[in-house]
Amino acid sequence: MNLFRLLGDLSHLASILVLLHKIQTSRSCRGISFKTQALYVAVFVARYLDLFWRYISLYNSAMKVFFIGSSCYILYLMKYRYRPTNDPSIDTFRIEYLLVPCAILSLIFNYNFMPTEILWSFSIFLESVAILPQLFMLQRTGEAEAITTHYLAALGIYRALYIPNWIYRYFTEGVIDPIAVTAGIVQTGLYLDFFYVYFTKVLQGQKFELPA
């Protein structure tokens, strides 16, 4: 565990707490893509169910339980408790365009051709693009509440911090994980446009608005 990874994980944790806070205090899930949240449940279940057969540390297991639990809870909030505030008509990204290529890629690129490893690869590939329905929705509406942008920023910073973590691990442990690194770079890249608007507008106190 190095500082980049710890801060990355804490940023991931913070992003979910920010999202829960936004939903609970505004009693609304307006502006949040149900499809992206559903994809995260798929990502976490596919990757973290290994907590039943792979023990790494208490920290690792506790985080896995938290991510599976909180993502399912968010789906529940969106689907049931705050259902009237969820507008599927603007959440129109076709997720089969993500699921099918990720499934094919995971059959080709994995560390061992066995179900658990294929699921692991699938979750890595799917996580890298799971934010697309959310970004697509943002693009369509052209604006977002500040709190929603804080959620997205924390989520983007999480993966961005994993990159120096991998560089650090390469030099200190000699280990390199090509699947995670490639997908991680793609994932971070998807946030670049968002980061630009976030850092130049939202953090300067302006509203998050995309140019028409």
């Binding site: 990874r5 991931h12 991510f67 560390y111 973590n165 280990v175």
Partner: peptide, 10 residues
């Protein structure tokens, strides 16, 4: 262990 297959990252 520090191999990619160890999957020790979140």
């Amino acid at each position: 262990s520090a191999t990619p297959e160890a999957h020790d990252e979140l």
